[in-house]
Amino acid sequence: MKELYLMRHSQTLFNQLHRIQGWSDSPLTKQGIEDAQEVGRYFKDQQITFDHAYSSTQERACDTLENITDQPYTRLKGLKEWNFGVFEGQSEQLNPHDDSSRHSYGDFFLQFGGESDLEVQERMNQTLTTIMEQPDHHHVLAVSHGGACFMFLQKWLPYDEIKRQVTNFHNCCILKFTYEDGKFTFIKAINVKEEN
């Protein structure tokens, strides 16, 4: 049984300023750097090691991973955050209400040059499946983003279960899955601050 640890990046300046941060980028805060280093210590303490590591091509994800471990890693565009089109860098107050049937922003951002929820979900699922299908990949760490991780989680876990099992999806939250026969199974959400 293969294992995937899918992690949301650390806190950034835009997170702090409550700005929409999709394909745009901003640096990790001091807190973000410290939190990522704490995750690194957690993995060491728990004796969790990875044969392969991956990151979104975005700086905030790469910097998070580099503060967790010094092992080599691969950057993949498929792990990037949701593209929010012209809303990039704007106040989070401009985010639309969730599409109640899809429990996400649905197709809203398509009209503004961004992606739909299902496009993000398909991209993430395809990328992570390709990663886990490789024969020498048994314990994998992948650092991605809030929206992208949440859409991937929705593919494999019913929304009611997400609400019940993932009560805190802040920066540095880790979603643990197993992978077998082309299917991901959600195991648990790990918030290192709550574990320590």
Rank of each mutant, 00 (worst) to 15 (best):
L157Y: 04
V166G: 07
I190D: 10
I190Q: 12
K176Q: 15
M151L: 13
C173L: 08
T185W: 03
K176S: 11
D181P: 03
Q154V: 09
Y159A: 01
F169K: 07
K183I: 03
I190E: 08
L157E: 08
I174E: 00
L157P: 04
K176R: 15
F177Q: 01
K163S: 03
L175V: 10
D160Y: 05
F169D: 05
N168S: 14
T178M: 01
Q154W: 06
T185Y: 07
F184L: 08
E180W: 11
F184I: 02
E180F: 13
A189P: 15
V166Q: 06
M151I: 06
N191E: 12
L157K: 03
F152P: 15
K183M: 04
R164G: 00
R164W: 00
E180L: 15
A189N: 11
P158M: 05
T178S: 13
P158T: 08
K183D: 05
I162F: 07
K188F: 02
D181W: 02
F152S: 11
Y179A: 11
L153S: 09
E180P: 15
I187P: 06
Q154Y: 08
K183A: 11
H170K: 15
F177N: 01
C173Q: 04
T178I: 01
F169S: 13
F152R: 09
Q165W: 00
Q154F: 08
F184M: 06
L153G: 11
Y159I: 10
K188Q: 14
K163G: 02
V166A: 06
A189E: 13
I190W: 06
T167Q: 12
Q154T: 05
I162V: 13
K183C: 08
N168L: 12
Y159V: 10
Q154K: 15
E161P: 01
K176I: 05
E161Y: 05
L153H: 07
Q165G: 00
D160F: 06
L175M: 15
H170I: 13
K176N: 10
I187C: 13
K163F: 01
F152V: 09
F184D: 04
H170S: 12
W156M: 04
I162C: 05
L157M: 07
I174H: 00
E180S: 15
T185L: 11
L153T: 05
K188G: 03
Y179W: 12
P158G: 03
F186L: 10
T178L: 02
P158L: 05
Y179R: 08
F177K: 00
N171P: 07
Q165R: 11
K163P: 00
C173P: 04
Q165P: 00
F186A: 14
G182M: 01
L153E: 08
D181T: 09
F177M: 00
W156L: 03
F169Q: 11
C172Q: 11
T178W: 01
E161A: 06
I187G: 04
N191I: 04
I162D: 02
L153N: 07
Y179P: 15
W156P: 05
F177I: 00
L153V: 11
N171C: 02
I190A: 10
L153P: 12
F169E: 03
F184E: 08
K155R: 15
K176A: 14
Y179F: 15
A189H: 09
E161D: 09
G182D: 02
A189F: 03
I187S: 05
N191F: 04
Q154P: 08
D160A: 11
E161F: 03
P158A: 06
